Amino acid sequence: MLMMSWVQQHVNKLEPVAIIVLLLLLGSLIQGIRRGASSSARRLFFFVWEGVVIVVCLVLAAQLANRLSPVVAEWLIKRVRVPLRELSGLEQGWFTLLTSLRDFALLRYGVLFIFGYLLLRAAAALVEPLIERSVESLLRSGREEPADGLKGKRSASRALGSIIGALHGAGRSFVFVALLFVYVSLMPNGWYVDKISESQIYNQAAEWLSPVAGDVLKGQGPVLTQAVEAQFKQILQRKYEIIDYAIPAEIEQAALYVTKDAQTNEDKARRLYDWLGTRIAYDYDKARNYEEQGIWKEQTPPETFDTRNGVCIDIARLYAVMARSAGLEVRVVTGMGADGQGGYGPHAWNEVQIGEGAEGWVPLDATWANAGDWFNPPAFDDTHIREA
C-alpha cells in the first residue's frame, strides 16, 4: 500500500525524476525475477565492478593529466612553430590544434584527461575476462539438482533474484540521481535545472550527497562554465591568428623598416607600437554599426594596413602580423577594456615576448596609444580584463 501510494503521488504529479527512478527500479526487479539468483548476482557484481573501475580510472586520469599537462606544454613550446606563409585548410586546422594545446591549459588538461581515461579503461578491460571467469566459477553449481527439487529451487532462485534485482535498481537509481546532482551543481542555470530541483527524490538524495561532494562542487559551476566559454572563444580566435601567419610582402617590408635600427626585442615591440598608434585611425563608424545595428565587417590585416582604419581587433591583428615579420613572438588577447565612464566593453590588445619564459611576455594596447603610453604600463591590468 505504501509503495502504491508513493507511486500514485509522484506519477500524478508527473515528476520526471521520480518516474525515471521508478522505471529503473521496476525494470531491475523484473530482470532479477527472470534471471534468477546466480545471473542477477553476476550482473550486480559487474555493475558494482564497473562503478569502481570508472571511479578509479577517473581519479587516476585526473592525476595523470595534472602531471603531464606542464610537461606537454613545455614540449609544445619548444617544438611548435607556425610557418610564416600561407597555409592550406588542413595545415590551418593542425596548427590551430597544436598551438591551442600549447597555450590553453583547460583544453590541454581536458584532452590529456580523456586520453588517460580511455587508456586506463582499455587496461581495465584486459583484466575483466579474468574477473568474469572467477565470478562464474564461484556462482556455478557443481551439482545437478534432483528433478523433484528443481521447481522449488527455481522459485527460491527467482525470489532471491528479485531482491538482488531490486538492489541493482537502487544502485542504478542512485547513479542517475548522482549525475543529476553533479549537473545541477556545475550548471546551476542549465536546461531543466529548475524542474530537477523541484523533485522530492532529487532533494532527498542531494541532502545525502551534499556533505560528500557539495563542498567540492559548490560555486564551481559558474566558474567552470565561464572558463570553458572563454577558452572556446580563444580557440575560435586562434583560427584567425593562424591565418594571419601568412605575411604579405608589403607588411613585412614595413615592419622590417620600422624595426631596422632596433637593438632588442623590446625596442622592436615598442617601435611597432608607436608606428601603429600614430598611423592607424580608430574606425568609429564600424564600431557604431556593430553596437547599434549588430553589423560586423570582418577585416584582414592587409585591409587595415591599406586603409589605415580599424577597430581594436583589427589593430591587434595587424600588430601581431608586423611583430612576427620582425621576428617577435606575439599573441592577440581579447577581453574587456575600461570605457572611461566606470564600465567595461569588449576589447582586444596584444602580448609580446621580450624576455625568457612566462615573465618575458608584456602587454600593450596600440588602439589606445593616442590616449597615453599603453606599452606595458604598471596598471595595465586595472583597465584590461582578459578572457580566462
Rank of each mutant, 00 (worst) to 15 (best):
D306S: 07
G294F: 11
R108G: 00
H347V: 00
A205H: 05
S162E: 06
Q234C: 10
I242D: 03
A105I: 07
G110W: 11
A326T: 10
L120A: 01
V223A: 01
R140M: 07
E136I: 14
S185N: 07
A124H: 00
L138W: 12
T99P: 05
L256W: 06
L26F: 04
L167Q: 00
L84G: 07
A123L: 07
A105T: 09
E86T: 05
S39I: 03
K151V: 10
S162V: 04
E128K: 09
L22H: 05
G214Q: 06
I243R: 04
I251P: 03
Q299E: 02
Q234E: 15
R271T: 01
G149E: 15
L119K: 09
V332H: 10
V135I: 13
Y344Q: 04
A281F: 14
I251F: 09
M336Q: 13
T259P: 09
R288M: 10
H168A: 05
L119M: 09
V193N: 02
A170L: 14
P16Y: 03
P302H: 06
R386S: 12
F47H: 13
R35Q: 14
A338S: 15
R386K: 08
L87Y: 14
I54N: 15
A281V: 03
Y192V: 12
A170K: 03
F113V: 06
L180I: 02
I315A: 08
E266V: 05
D283S: 02
M4D: 02
V7A: 12
L236S: 09
V11H: 08
A281G: 01
D285M: 13
Q200H: 06
